[in-house]
Design a protein around this nucleic acid. Sequence first.
RNA 1: GCCCUUUUAGUUCAGUGGUAGAAUAGUUGAAUGGUAAUCAACAGACACAAGUUCGAUUCUUGUACUGGGCACCA
Length: 575
Amino acid sequence: MINIKEDEKLSPLNHSCAHLMAHAIKNLYPKALFWVGPFIKEGFYYDIDLGDDFIKEEDLEAIEREMKKLAKKNKRIYKEILSRDEALEMFKNDPYKVDLISELEGKISVYKQDDFIDLCRGPHVESTKELRHFKLLKVSGAYFKGDSKNKMLQRVYGICFENEEDLKEHLNFLEEVKKRDHKKIGQELELFMISEYGSGFPFWLPKGMVIRKTLEDFWYKEHIKEGYEFIQTPIMLSKDLWEVSGHYTNYKENMYFSNIDDKEFAIKPMNCPGGMLVYKNTLHSYRDFPLRVGELGLVHRHEASGALNGLFRVRTFTQDDAHLFMTEDQIESEIVNLINFIDRMYSVFGLKYSIELSTRPEEKYIGDISIWNRSEKALASACEKAGKEFKINEGDGAFYGPKLDFKVLDAIGREWQCGTIQLDMNLPERFDLHYIDKDGSKKRPIMLHRVIYGSIERFIGILIEHYSGAFPLWISPMQISIIPVNNEHHLKYSLEIEEKLKAKGLRVEVDSRDEKMGYKIREKQTGKVPYTLIIGDKELDENMISYRKYGEEKTAQVSLEGFISVILSEIDMKK
RNA sequence: GCCCUUUUAGUUCAGUGGUAGAAUAGUUGAAUGGUAAUCAACAGACACAAGUUCGAUUCUUGUACUGGGCACCA
């Protein structure tokens, strides 16, 4: 996956291409006014005010043609330095540029090509002739200065490369992304659906449910190894609780409510308040620590309609949550444990990841600065002790504490935010949590929230795209499909095999429909079933089975016992 | 929520100011098969509401939904 932002050659190229596009748009839409046109990770864009006119997707081709025409003229791109007054004079008829100039300090630089001139810091390529291998990708709306209170401008995105091969490669990558789309694969493989009666509320279909259940079972098993206990808290609780937790004041717009017997109830957007009540249910001693309490908690959040996106952004989802309670000097070792745990969980799926440490916000934060400093240090040194590199996001922590974010990298190099470990100084205070220390005094525990999958729904979405729908055997909804060559002669033997495989806990089916085997094999391949067994005269006579692995064309012949042991060890290794 | 976009059969797509056509899935029948699609018959759809019109699936408006962005993600 490319990152133009970090490429010294591609970033000026894309920046210049943004200007070339603006130039072309200016020629085609004389009324157009331009705000800014930077290069980004995946290309460039320009924000444009076209008055009451619009650029539509189908207009992009015409703009591209105009760009090619301009580029061919081989105009030199040169820089000029102006004083503020000169700049203001030059752009006096363009309110956007005047606005921009007013935000800049010192001398103003502009770039010129032919009759087009634009404010810009640069750098740019030397001539328009270098801009040849580009593609305009999409149009959309974008708020002026990124503020939803402002007017919406039109944004056109594109990307530029040094040569045609790189451009082609990138366009192929975009095709690949489309092919892997979990919404598409989820429908094709009948994993989940979303009804028009509830956008943002996914339904799990039988096959998707197998995946979900498998991930949940695995999650429980691994958490037991790590010394966790489990709870389940109600999805609906009195509004009073959300006032104590602070969610009612800060998060009301995103919560669902219901009135019962004239009392207001809220559907939980987070599991923590319920977890706090469980903690308070008993008196705690320092001897109980670290206390690790997990909950696969179903939460509901009223996300903006435009934010919804398949399983990635939904209105109801299951967090693989846990709350950990400890003393201050247990923070570091507990975080080291967690990092190693998360590492183990991700590596099972072949997911690489990076860690980011977010520290105390400049202004809006609560709690003692000395606790902030100590816990930030604990998070950092835990990463070091676990042997993990991390990036620091200064001031990016939540108001209630610093955090470590885990971003997983999928099979085609895209990043997804999944796990997070957050220290929380807010809730223990609000809920007045305490424990009895060695000396018999009451103390406030340190509390961590953490998730590993993040949201099970979202994680499955990521896995679908990561594996492109071809799940490893242990997760695959249907593991083995048995095809009798002829129902009359081979069905009985097939059913016997099915029986034996089922007895081993495998997910098996016999496809006994009256169809030709070529047809069935095709279906198993498009359905991405890991193993297909073919049972005919040959297998019957020799008391063997023939199997074909997903994605391979060859067939292997083995005894049933041999096959079972191969399969079971593959499941065991989670390959 | 905002901008643009989309909506025709279970699914993927054609098409029209005089209510629609295919592929595939489905049902039924025939075919008994050796590694990516056997043949035939049947059945199945214009998102919803209002307007324009003799007549609207088609045009207009609104609503809902889809997709891509933006904003949001205490």
